[in-house]
Amino acid sequence: MKDLTVTVGDRPIRQVNAEIRDAVAAGRDVTVTDTKSRHNLAIGMDARANIRFEGSVGYYCGGLNCGARIQVERNAGWAVGEAMSSGEITVGGYAGMSAGTSMLGGLLHIKGNAGPRCGVAMKGGDIIVEGRIGYLSGFMAHAGRIIALEGAGDACADSLWGGEVWLAGPAKSLGVDTRLTEPSAEQVQEVEALLAERGLADSSRDWRKIVSAQRLWHFQSRDAKAWLMI
């Protein structure tokens, strides 16, 4: 069946999302036009959905995704793919603050840079950022993997609980309770295979993997000073 085109403009978002859901239920792919950086588009879509946004979207696009394939042609605002459990979201340009917040699974692929707190409180899945991840990225993540091809801003992986931050470029600084490791050949192969699937194969990358130093797992108030950042 032919794609359905849904126009956003200044229409109520509830109506736009209802049209997207109806089209998905009828088995049609959806192209969304005149997006005007509006918020809350395509929330809670399931595995039948294949949605493409022409232009930039606002906050929380693709939030609570459970299986949909969502493409954003240009930029995304705050928290794209927040709490996604499965599926695949691609952002063509820049992703604003807190991209992939509390993600549980699935893949978030950002072709530009990501803002601060990328993957904050992440609990599973993968985030690939072709550019740099911003300040405090991976903050308090519990599980999952953030992969940044051009490096990271300040306080990278601060207070990381579990999970991994992979960098193929420099980090401005590392956050507290982090441990910088050399990944094994098998681990690198796994990450490179994931990147190759996205057309990002490059065997010359110099990988560093950041994991939790696990000292905050057993916080003692007498150590509080060690954790003060300012």
Binding site: S37, R38, S56, G58, N75, G96, G115
Partner: peptide, 20 residues
Amino acid sequence: EEQAVRRIYAAEGDVVNYDG
């Protein structure tokens, strides 16, 4: 919010995000 400046500049364009 970006969607506010799009009231002035409706077309897609270069947006500077002061996110850092």
